[in-house]
């Protein structure tokens, strides 16, 4: 299946992108939404009104400088109170990198992220396998499909107790796994997970940086031609149409 732009019937879908103090990748996330055919809506952490958006992306960065714990302070923002309610009501939410950390701190997703095993900040093009192609954010991928998107973080080591890990595996809630190399020591090579309903997804790598030829990772078409991340955003538009 193609992960390309959907037709124009989806153009009305409004996808919010929340900016926290220290967020870095909100513009890139908004751009990814636009390239996929949706309408990005800028949301601010201090505003408890989600402006009636159909889905929300929590972008990457270092909100509050990663002080205390990555995502720990953002989790208590007014926008997050509204988001937690909306997510429990079934609204699609994607947390990328710091956004994933915020989702775990908000207990919308289990587990947590600690410092990379090797203690280094890492930035590379990372191969992932799509382990669950049934979520709101992955339905335009094939089950088991390998995708290449950038990875850049310092606190990227996914941890959870064995019981939680077994539960995630048993319920098909491991959404993405690292392929070839585990870049941060994450338990069971887990790169991203989903909630049971499949509307809330979090991952450490950055799909929004692989959405336009010329600016993405290296791909089969040549240097920087990779657009494997676009499928996240076309997936959510497709799930909104079928909702």
């Amino acid at each position: 299946m193609s992960a390309g732009t959907l037709d124009t019937t989806l153009a009305e879908a409004r996808i919010g992108v929340i900016t926290f103090p220290g967020t870095l990748d909100d513009r890139d996330a908004a751009r990814a939404v636009r390239l996929a055919g949706g309408e990005p809506v800028s949301l601010f952490h201090a505003d408890g009104d989600l402006q009636g958006v159909d889905a929300v992306v929590l972008p990457g960065g270092f909100s509050y400088g990663d002080y205390l714990r990555a995502g720990a302070i953002s989790r208590f923002a007014p926008a997050m109170d509204a988001l937690v309610d909306a997510a429990k009501g079934g609204m699609p939410v994607l947390g990328i990198c710091n956004g994933f950390q915020v989702l775990t701190e908000a207990h919308l997703l289990p587990g947590s992220m600690i410092k990379n095993e090797h203690l280094h900040f890492i930035c590379r093009e990372q191969v992932l396998s799509v382990e669950n192609a049934g979520t709101a954010w992955t339905n335009r991928y094939e089950q088991g499909q390998h995708i290449t998107i950038p990875l850049k973080n310092q606190d990227g080591q996914f941890v959870a107790d064995e019981h939680t890990l077994d539960e995630l595996e048993g319920e098909g809630r491991v959404a993405f796994r690292y392929v070839g190399w585990n870049p941060n020591g994450s338990r069971r090579d887990i790169a991203g997970i989903t909630n049971a309903a499949g509307n809330v997804v979090g991952l450490m790598p950055h799909p929004e940086h692989a959405v336009e030829a010329g600016f993405g990772p290296d791909g089969p078409e040549g240097p920087r031609s990779g657009t494997d991340g676009l499928g996240f955003f076309t997936s959510v538009l497709a799930s909104l149409v079928h909702a």
Partner: peptide, 8 residues
């Protein structure tokens, strides 16, 4: 609630 994360 804030100063620690009970998961870790």
């Amino acid at each position: 609630t804030l100063l620690s994360n009970p998961i870790i």
